[in-house]
């Protein structure tokens, strides 16, 4: 029989402590309401503050909304922006869809990779940035485009990357 390593919930990679996370969830549930309909706003609220959904957060949300934790996880994992793995403080999403590809998104990604010394999908050591590729961001006439958190950078050029990212440091 395969031996399973005993699992401990993944709070180690999270700079937020359990009590803070639980308090945040409590606030969000108070704000949005204690029904299933508020699940997405609550999940979004946690991601806004903590950049991803730790197990602690999902368990707390499940408890507060009277859902199972698996259900919360299953729902969250459906949505690309509701990350369930640790992410950096700032999430960079470069559009990878065809028109942005045609306009040079690869050079943009490479510029970011060179600057941050990470590959697509990775997070910088100092947890400042995570670099992700995204499906169509809705700026096809102004590609390539990237989002840093909620901020949009249309027509982004590789030589602007350093200046743009510096703003988030």
């Amino acid at each position: 029989m395969k031996n399973y390593i005993c699992y401990s919930i993944n709070n180690t990679l999270n700079q937020f402590n359990m009590a803070d996370t639980e308090k945040l969830v409590e606030q969000l549930v108070t704000q949005h309401g204690k029904t299933r309909n508020s699940l997405l706003p609550v999940l979004q609220g946690v991601v806004r503050e903590e950049h991803f959904l730790s197990d602690t957060a999902m368990i707390a949300i499940a408890k507060a909304l009277n859902l199972s934790s698996a259900d919360v996880y299953g729902t969250a994992s459906f949505y690309t922006f509701l990350e369930t793995e640790p992410r950096g403080e700032n999430i960079i999403r470069v559009c990878k869809t065809i028109t942005c590809k045609m306009k040079g998104k690869q050079q943009v990604i490479e510029a970011i990779e060179n600057h941050l010394k990470i590959k697509e999908g990775e997070t910088t050591r100092n947890k400042k940035f995570t670099l992700l590729a995204a499906n169509c961001l809705g700026w096809c006439h102004k590609g390539p485009v990237m989002l840093v958190n909620d901020d949009v950078y249309p027509h982004v050029a590789p030589d602007q990357i350093v200046d743009i990212l510096d703003k988030y440091c």
Binding site: Y4, Y7, S68, A70, D71, G74
Partner: peptide
């Protein structure tokens, strides 16, 4: 009404999971 199992992810990655894909012995 236990909900130990859930559907997770979407598209080609959609599958049946437990909470955060923990082994069955560690979930509800």
């Amino acid at each position: 009404h236990v909900n130990a199992l859930t559907v997770s992810h979407k598209g080609k990655d959609m599958k049946i999971s437990t909470f955060h894909d923990l082994p069955l012995k560690d979930v509800v």
